[in-house]
Write a protein that binds this DNA or RNA. Sequence first.
DNA 1: GTGTTCTAAACTGTATACAGCGCTGTCGAA
DNA 2: TTCGACAGCGCTGTATACAGTTTAGAACAC
Lengths: 231, 231
Amino acid sequence: MADQGSSVDRVYATLRDMAINFDFKPGERLNETALTSKLNVSRTPLREALNRLVAEGFLTLAKGQGFFCRPLSPEQILELYQLRCALETEALRHGVEVATDAEIAEFCAYLNATETTYDSCDDLTELLKMDEEFHMRLAGLSGNNELCRMLKNVNERIRYVRLVNLRQLRGMDCTEAGDNTFLSAHRAIANAVQNRDTQTALTALRAHIERRSEQTIELVRLAYSQLYVPS
Amino acid sequence: MADQGSSVDRVYATLRDMAINFDFKPGERLNETALTSKLNVSRTPLREALNRLVAEGFLTLAKGQGFFCRPLSPEQILELYQLRCALETEALRHGVEVATDAEIAEFCAYLNATETTYDSCDDLTELLKMDEEFHMRLAGLSGNNELCRMLKNVNERIRYVRLVNLRQLRGMDCTEAGDNTFLSAHRAIANAVQNRDTQTALTALRAHIERRSEQTIELVRLAYSQLYVPS
DNA sequence: GTGTTCTAAACTGTATACAGCGCTGTCGAA
DNA sequence: TTCGACAGCGCTGTATACAGTTTAGAACAC
């Protein structure tokens, strides 16, 4: 993290983080000159980074009006959840076929290693990171880099909403719907993968993902309410 | 098509087409100054377009060395075929559920309308475009824009190899493995969709796509051989 | 003839400058 | 009072200029 290399890369990373966390509010117009002074770069590398982010779906670009933050709508989030489901299930299919026993063992070992942290973890951001890591490793078993790249992108774009979701569950303090289910679902998937039981694993994975996507509408509403409160 | 708007958009569209057709050879380094004079723009909008293309997977960017054309490898193509399968099958799942009868009817009507062109078509580029259109419309039934966006991108990135594939089939003049199978497969899928028979449709679609992906290695070899012959 | 080092050209990455467009806010007229 | 036009400002989009780095080529040693 010491030297991020070129300006563009550093700026790009910063802006992407900001976009992920909705530091830019949905639909908000980005002022380039303001960002240049904030990030201490000229407009040239800034705009190069912004263009990348447009291509990745984090921003939009209106001709003659500049760059805007992506909107936040239930439809969009639902679409991304479906996309995630598509990518993960396909990865699972291939992972069960091509992954070596050693690779699967390592995957399960990771789950075991993090197991104790699942409910003892106070920091929801950390918990979410663990969950994403689990799913990325699962996808990684397929050996399909393109698939993983896209999944990473999708995860980043829905991360904010998922975080809101976790906050809500934590707030309800309802363990049966909360973290424990997280863990047990992951366990079930991992076990099925270890047994090379594609169908069981697929069903469990799909249920695990789609479960979250059902409450999208309320979730986005909740997200909005949290977006505009001063932290 | 008259006025492509800003320079960036025009340059971007041109460069993307060139990348799709492998006018840049795999791994080739792009000379920016050469491109500026070729496209009659300065380096600023050129680089913005190039950055977008990097984010979309058409180019790569090496620090201090500039932009390169994406590599062309069997592994990569196979990954993209799998990705395509993931996206299309998921779209199909939802399409069968959410599409109205009218929408499905229109979809089938398109297939019927183009039906006669399938084997009478000499221009393989045109044939390929028809095939892509069919699959995009099929995916469109899901109503999932994000999914369609990604599918479009994947299709563009494998288009060259698919074209080579078609040329090969045409060369063999083997109708049983050629265009007719194309059409009958599409028919089978469309029928299953119309009957809201998800499983049959899924099986047919997956087979239709994976069938092509089996011969990836020879196909990429063939692609290379065609890439460097003067047209 | 082959390998190595040094020099110069070329190219990338970034900053700055400029033109054109859109937006806003005020002033005037109905 | 409200609607519309005009002026001023700000911002985007593009071109150009400059510094640092890489690469290619030539000269020289082995």
